[in-house]
Amino acid sequence: MADALTATTILAGRGAAAVTPARDNSRSWPALAMVAPAIVLMGLLLLGPLLGVIALSFTDYQLGSPRFAWIGFANYEEMLADRVFWISLRNTLTYVAIVVPTAVALGLAVALLIESGSSLRAWYRTIYFLPVMATLIAMSIVWEFMLHPQFGLVNGLLHSVGLEGRSWLQDRGTALYALCVIGVWQALGFNMVLFLAGLVSIPRPLYDAAEIDGAHGAWARFRLVTWPMLGPTTVFVVVITGIRSFQVFDTVHVLTKGGPSKSSEVLIHTMYIEGFEFFRSGYGAALTVVFLVFVLLLTLVKSSLANRGVHYA
């Protein structure tokens, strides 16, 4: 009743100027009906679960157990004391630290090379984009065979130039790096396309002006025009590649299962094992929260740089 009264007062206050309240009202109901399904599903499938995962991380819930208890930070304490967690975190950070700079730099290099000439542009673009489209799981299996210690293409090629092959995915020293190569292979084309779009949007007259101003050679032009103008694109590409690299799971799960002896264990994979193979939901949730913190950090980097003129499109 009190609510209805305040609502009426507000409406009356706003309506003093014109006859809009009636109109507002008549459109307000369809509007609410239109957003209602989205609101309900957002609450049920996104926001609720997000809060749920945080809450869950403070419990000892296990799937199937009839009851659970609030255990405070016990999951986090266990996590911090767990060698596997630290290995997993270090591997994830290593993966990100290798894949992001490599995939961004190569993506930029390929985009610049494609853009610097006029022939075969569309062909190169298509080829480099192919891994983005191809189902990663299927291609992981192909990579697995390519990296096969005995019959794989990679070792075969190495032999032919007189080098010793390795058991790439079964070797503690190389498994994670092999996954990095696959990660770069897959992300490169996506970054290239984003950089190409960025390059195309640089106004041509700027290059003319640079030429008139005496910026000779590719490097001077790149420093004066291309690189600064690509700034927003670069920030975007770095953050996107970063978030995707933190999410690495498919290749790990199919090719190494985190092994050998945890040498390629990564955060999401650990979370998957704890949450969905051991059904330790509470502990899995705590791992998810750690993952979320990293993604959030990257997002913050992006939005703080966004104020300097990053455009989303």
Binding site: I212, D213, V225, P228
Partner: peptide, 21 residues
């Protein structure tokens, strides 16, 4: 001879100012 070496200056329709500078 390169544009800059011709020692001519040019003012463009879009001004072509470097937006980051």
């Amino acid at each position: 001879i390169r544009p800059s070496a011709r020692n001519l200056a040019m003012v463009f329709q879009s001004y072509a100012l470097y937006p980051h500078l």
